[in-house]
C-alpha cells in the first residue's frame, strides 16, 4: 500500500481555501501542517469535510500538538514561545489530518501522537 504525505506550511493554509485541503484528503493524502490550527480553522475544516462526506469518503481524523503543552516546558519557555508565536502569527506545533479510511484513530498525549491505521 502506498501512503502519500503532504507537508503544508501554515502560511499557505491561511492563504488557500480549506476546501483545497479537503480535496487532497479525499484523494487519500495525509496532511501535515507545521503549526497548531486555531479552533476556528478546526471547525471550518470539520464543516468543509462534512459537506463532502460520501460512500467513499467518510471524513477525517485530525489532531494537533502544541509546543506549549509539552511537560518539560518552563514558564520562561512558554513566555518565549508566546512572543515568537505573536511575531510569526502562528501557534508553534504540528497538525496531522488524515482520511478516516486510512487513519482509524489518533490517540494524543502531550508529547506524542499515536496513529491507528
Amino acid at each position: 500500500m502506498n501512503l502519500r504525505i503532504k507537508l503544508i506550511p501554515y502560511e499557505r493554509l491561511k492563504r488557500e481555501e480549506i476546501n483545497n485541503l479537503v480535496k487532497d484528503l479525499k484523494e487519500g493524502t495525509i496532511i501535515l501542517v507545521d503549526a497548531k490550527l486555531n479552533p476556528k480553522e478546526e471547525a471550518d475544516l470539520i464543516e468543509e469535510t462534512m459537506k463532502v462526506v460520501s460512500e467513499k469518503f467518510s471524513g477525517i481524523e485530525l489532531s494537533s500538538m502544541d509546543l506549549a503543552e509539552l511537560k518539560e516546558t518552563t514558564n520562561f519557555e512558554r513566555f518565549k514561545n508566546m512572543i515568537i508565536e505573536r511575531i510569526m502569527g502562528k501557534k508553534r506545533g504540528l497538525t496531522i489530518i488524515g482520511p478516516a479510511k486510512i487513519i482509524k484513530k489518533i490517540e494524543k498525549n502531550p508529547e506524542e501522537l499515536l496513529l491507528y491505521m
Binding site: 486555531n38 479552533p39 476556528k40 478546526e42 471547525a43 470539520i46 481524523e61 485530525l62 489532531s63 494537533s64 489518533i106 494524543k108
Partner: peptide
Amino acid sequence: QVNITILGNLDA
C-alpha cells in the same frame, strides 16, 4: 479532537 475543538471555539 472533537472535545478540544468544541472547547476551543467556545473560549474563542
